[in-house]
Design a protein around this nucleic acid. Structure first.
Length: 822
RNA sequence: GGGGGCGUAGCCCAAUUGGCAGAGGCAAGGCGCUUAAACCGCCUCAAGUGAGGGUUCGAGUCCCUCCGCCCCUACCA
């Protein structure tokens, strides 16, 4: 593209100036109103792609816009620099993950700097920086000391491809690893967990207070999965002193319980299994023990046939409602980790139970009257109870209460809240992560590494392979240590922490990165927290956001965060994904579009403008063959704007006339619109409004009649200011040409619309007959209903159209419309 | 199976939240500029809103059914 100005030159000039002058550095004691603008820190994957450009453009617009509103804006940046890809790449390349990672960081930083996004680089945080690790580990130890971090043997998700345990969240719905795509296996291992379930209720409740996208709130709510129900006993038929404890959300269906099911790992299974059934039960248990939870709980096609998924134990329990014996089955779809690991089965009201009962020939009793014409097997809706003795006639809610009372009296029943949320498994059998700072002593057991020995750093001379053990486990010099208590021989923990631990508190460190003796000084962090605007991808809707919320609450309860809010992110914006011809753009798919060529093509300003203009920021954007032309159009708009500001093609006249007034109105209406669209995250419309204003101003200024100088100056200045957060380089350059002695455009105040000028002097009122537009009329905006109707009926075209007919009814919505019904 | 979103001009997208279907851009076409082309400037073009039904004076917007695409979630008792 032939440009009217030297894009590269001015971009380099302004980027250098922002860096040299520290324009967007803020100090913690800045007297202005504070605003914390945060974009999720990236995993350093190498040079930037369009997804990066998109998120960091949005973030930068927030920073510059809020600054122009007069606030001290905290705009930090850093890198989520631990993680598996670096380790895998290093194994392949025979290098060290640190070398690999730091190279990639440099690369990403450079290509992001070319975007012109501004940060306070003094506050940079990187996960693998020993100074940061020291506090990641200190937090782990604080959690450990408070009982929030614990070690337990657990059936965990094991990914053979990655050679590590995964969190539930990292297992996809088809039972494969989100990263490698391998089928996840189940293994029993000693693992570290964080007790996030202690916070389930608060994590759920506070969701209502957050200004977050509804779908993210919904996803978190579903993930936490709160349910209310009753826990009670099903006594053994042959020994009523013993019982299986079950959990149900539908105690009202108790009269329909025709069997019970326990999980394969249930402690009572052995006792309940009779000799005749032993083989069948054992086969099932064996198979289930190898399946991942996801596979176990999947009934979709390709799953294991229901016939093979359950087995009769040979025993019976008593239904406390009917006092009748019902058989006990074991089935893999009942999980040992949820509720009590055993259920009462109600095939009449539960579809899973119905399907199971159908296969195993178990009786079905309906206890809720299904609506007429109901054809399914199980009816789970509301209705009057039937076949239920003292519950008959009650609806579900009433029956639940009454059934719970009955169970409390007859079966040790208690109301109980259950959550789908599990404790967070944080151990990773990998090298490139933050080592878990724990020492195992034969005498003193599990001992945290003393504070003065933090951070625990992994040695560099480690052999990395995919054996399945942590590479650190085979490094004797690291592994063998002494007990901090007795000085005797001891072993270090060789697992590392989930990288989500690193990203769960980085925003606190940003607020106070200079503190040495603490993770952060709460008084300093409180000056910025909570984050006013968080910007990031929807892919973090559950994991990162939930963990970070948990960390802050836990830190507060440990006394680390007095004066800080318990919710870290007040407002969240999740930008849409960029897809390439329909499929998600990602490094693993190899379909990235590099921004580099576009920096050369339309410059950072043009590329930024494109990302803001291409569509609603929250929507996905499909990158296709025509995208380049849209980008070019954005560059062209900046060119046109630049040319206009040179005033070469403008005719001037003296004195303000009608045309000037109209232009001023357009300017102020645009200010109002752009401000609104910025606040509402509709930058695409803000850009369109600016283009519209440009067209108006340009046409007027270039007309023979020409422009009045001060009006045109006002229009150009307002446009420069509004465009400044979006296309910062060219606007800064033009502003400097116009006002060499003033502060830069980015230090100017955001323009404010004059309410008088925003008002319309007249409005076009539409006159319809039977809903069809027959005439238009210019009316004052405050026209009364009576006047509107009178004037409408006086219009000639209306009288002609009416042809003498008498209106049956007139609907008026002044000043917009009058509809005459005949 | 459950939950959510989307469908407007050849394309990307607007539409004061129930009130004239069009703001902006891209593409296409025409004219001007030019020796010519590019650039640039001006102008023109286009859909009745996925389909059908309903409510209403009036529906892109609200309700129902269906079609298509996308996302999330998936036996949590």
């Amino acid at each position: 593209m032939a440009r009217p100005f030297n894009v590269t030159e001015i971009e380099e000039k302004w980027q250098a100036r922002w860096a040299d002058e520290g324009t967007y550095q803020v100090d913690n004691d800045d007297p202005r109103e504070r605003f914390y603008a945060l974009s999720m820190y990236p995993y350093p994957s190498g040079s930037a792609h369009q997804g990066h450009v998109r998120i960091y453009t949005f973030g930068d617009v927030v920073v510059r816009y809020q600054t122009m509103l007069g606030k001290a804006v905290l705009s930090p940046f850093g890198f989520d620099s631990f993680g598996l890809p670096a380790e895998n790449a290093a194994i392949k390349a025979g290098s060290h993950p640190r070398v690999f990672t730091e190279d990639r960081m440099k690369e990403l930083k450079a290509s992001l700097l070319r975007l012109g996004a501004v940060y306070d680089w003094r506050r940079e945080v990187t996960s693998h920086d020993p100074k940061y690790m020291r506090w990641s580990q200190a937090i782990f130890i604080a959690f450990f000391n408070a009982g929030l971090a614990y070690r337990a043997e657990a059936a965990v998700n094991w990914c053979p491809g990655c050679g590590t345990v995964l969190a539930n969240e990292q297992v996809l719905s088809d039972g494969t690893c989100e990263r490698s795509g391998d089928l996840v296996e189940r293994r029993n291992l000693e693992q570290w967990f964080f007790k996030i379930t202690d916070y389930a209720e608060e994590l759920l409740r506070n969701l209502d207070t957050l200004d977050w996208p509804q779908r993210v709130v919904t996803m978190q709510r579903n993930w936490i999965g709160r349910s209310e129900g009753v826990e009670f006993d099903l006594p053994f038929a042959n020994d009523r002193s013993k019982a299986i404890r079950v959990y149900t959300t539908r105690p009202d269906t108790g009269f329909g319980v025709t069997y019970a099911v326990i999980a394969p790992e249930h402690p009572l299974l052995e006792e309940l299994t009779t000799a005749e059934q032993r083989d069948g039960v054992q086969a099932l248990v064996e198979r289930a023990s190898k399946e991942s939870e996801v596979v176990r709980t999947s009934t979709s096609e390709g799953g294991i046939a229901l016939e093979k998924r359950g087995a009769f134990t040979g025993s019976y329990v008593i239904n406390p409602f009917t006092d009748e014996q019902v058989p006990v089955y074991v089935a893999d779809y009942v999980l040992g980790t949820y509720g009590t690991g055993a259920i009462m089965a109600v095939p009449g009201e539960d579809e899973r139970d119905f399907a199971f009962a159908s296969v195993y020939g178990l009786p079905v009793v309906h206890t809720t009257q299904p609506p007429e014409g109901f054809e399914g097997g199980a009816y789970s809706g509301d209705g009057a109870h039937i076949n239920s003795d003292f519950l008959n006639g009650l609806d579900v809610a009433e029956a639940k209460t009454k059934a719970a009372e009955y169970l409390a009296e007859h079966a040790n029943g208690i109301w109980k809240v259950n959550y789908r949320l599990r404790d967070w498994l944080v151990s990773r059998q990998r090298f490139w992560g933050c080592p878990i700072p724990i020492i195992y002593c034969d005498v003193h057991g599990t001992v945290p590494v003393p504070d003065d020995q933090l951070p625990v750093l992994a040695p560099d001379d480690v052999v990395m392979d995919k054996s399945g053990q942590s590479p650190l486990a085979t490094h004797d010099a690291f592994r063998n240590t002494t007990c901090p208590i007795c000085g005797g021989p001891a072993r270090r923990e060789t697992d590392t922490m989930d990288t989500f631990c690193d990203s769960s508190w980085y925003f606190l460190r940003y607020a106070d990165p200079w503190t040495d003796g603490k993770a952060f000084d709460p008084a300093e962090a409180a000056k910025w927290m909570p984050v006013d605007q968080y910007v990031g991808g929807i892919e973090h809707a559950i994991l990162h956001l939930l963990y970070a919320r948990f960390y802050l609450k836990a830190l507060d309860d440990l006394g680390w965060a007095p004066g800080l809010p318990r919710e870290p992110f007040t407002r969240l914006f999740s930008q849409g994904m960029i897809r390439l011809s329909g499929s998600k753009m990602s490094k693993s798919k190899g379909n990235l579009v590099a921004p580099q060529e576009y920096y050369d093509f339309v410059g950072a300003d043009g590329l930024r403008l494109f990302h803001l203009f291409a569509g609603p920021p929250a929507d996905d954007f499909d990158w296709n063959d025509q995208t380049d032309e849209i980008i070019e159009g954005c560059g062209r708009f900046l060119d046109r704007f630049y040319r206009l500001t040179q005033y070469h093609e403008v005719n001037f006249h003296d004195g303000v006339d009608e045309g000037d007034v109209e232009v001023r109105r357009a300017v102020h209406r645009t200010i109002l619109r752009v401000t609104e669209e910025f606040e509402g995250w509709s930058h695409n419309i803000a850009v369109a409004a600016l283009m519209e204003l440009f067209n108006t101003v340009s046409k007027w200024a270039r007309s023979d009649h020409g422009a009045e100088r001060t009006t045109l100056d006002e229009a150009i200045d307002a446009m420069l200011k509004m465009l400044a957060p979006m296309s910062p380089h060219v606007t800064a350059e033009i502003w400097e040409m116009r006002y060499p002695d003033k502060l830069t455009v980015h230090r100017q105040a955001w323009p404010v619309a004059d309410p008088e000028l925003v008002k319309h002097s007249t409005i076009t009122m539409v006159i319809q007959i039977n809903g069809k537009v027959k005439a238009r009329l210019e009316v004052p905006p405050d026209i009364s209903m009576a006047d509107a109707e009178t004037e409408a009926l006086e219009v000639n075209a209306i009288n002609v159209a009416l042809a003498g007919a008498t209106p049956k009814r007139i609907v008026s919505r002044p000043p917009r419309l009058v509809n005459i019904i005949v």
